[in-house]
């Protein structure tokens, strides 16, 4: 290791151990010039991952759009099987959780570990509340016989199209909920790291990257809510 390099990164610990918990420095991997470059690489990598997620959800949404323009009226009717109140409530909960996540990043940049943990736990609680409400929604669909393939009992006009709409509803919201569950797992790790004093104004990359993921999951819901819940309310 050249001396000049070591000198330019005075706080780098090259073994990645946590022996300096709370220390402002963090290991800079040796392929990077400095922490700033490493942060830039992490940010770009995260955005490219989110780009693949856009394609992932985009493909299902494109299929959904095609069936919507094919069966406008039955899809608008089928949309009214969903609870507008619960969908709107979950939208507000997710938007609020994005605010608390942004505050968690802000706290990691400016505040102590306790404040960081507080905002992370609030985000986590809101994410859990979203999933609980979603679980109640799913439960009522089972009770009403509106789950495609499993005792689908709706036999009004356009029953086949209603079943198709509900298939998309479960596929889209189910994949979204899976992302929420993963997000909550990520937040748990962040809480654990924040408690150990891992984050500071000099190093908060995991909080910022997890924040990008959390906001993205919020962003997906911003499209799912009107596309699924609001079609047939007029």
């Amino acid at each position: 290791m050249p001396d000049s390099h070591a000198a330019s990164v005075p706080h780098a610990h090259h073994h990645g151990h946590d022996s300096h918990a709370g220390h402002a420095g963090h290991a800079v991997a040796h392929q990077f010039d400095d922490a700033e470059q490493q942060f830039g690489a992490a940010t770009l990598g995260m955005w490219i991952f989110l780009l693949t997620e856009v394609m992932f959800f985009g493909a299902i949404l494109a299929a959904y759009a095609i069936y919507f323009v094919t069966y406008v009226d039955p899809f608008e009717d089928a949309s009214n099987h969903l609870s507008l109140a619960l969908g709107a409530l979950n939208t507000v909960i997710l938007l609020t959780s994005s605010l608390t996540m942004a505050r968690a990043v802000h706290a990691a940049q400016t505040a102590d570990a306790r404040t960081q943990v507080r905002w992370l736990v609030r985000t986590l609680a809101l994410g859990a509340a979203f999933l609980v409400i979603k679980a109640f929604e799913y439960g009522s669909k089972f009770e009403e016989g509106l789950v495609p393939g499993i005792g689908f009992r709706y036999d009004g006009p356009g029953a086949a199209q209603h079943e198709l709409f509900l298939s998309f509803y479960f596929a889209l919201t189910g994949l979204h909920a899976l992302h929420m569950i993963i997000g909550i797992g990520v937040l748990l790790v962040l809480v654990w790291m924040a408690r150990r004093g891992r984050f500071s104004a000099a190093y908060f990359t995991p909080v910022e990257m997890s924040g990008l993921y959390w906001h993205f999951v919020d962003l997906v819901w911003i499209f799912l809510f009107p596309m699924l819940y609001l079609l047939g309310r007029h």
Binding site: T43, L51, V54, M55, G58, A102, H215, D218, I222
Partner: peptide
């Protein structure tokens, strides 16, 4: 959400390219 919560407004050029690629992909797909 993307511009402010995700900080795209203060993002570097490469990040913006990644987002433009995503938007172009979605436009092509739909």
């Amino acid at each position: 959400v993307a511009l402010y919560f995700m900080g795209l407004r203060w993002g570097d050029r490469m990040t913006r390219v990644a987002v433009l690629v995503a938007l172009a992909g979605v436009a092509l797909l739909f």
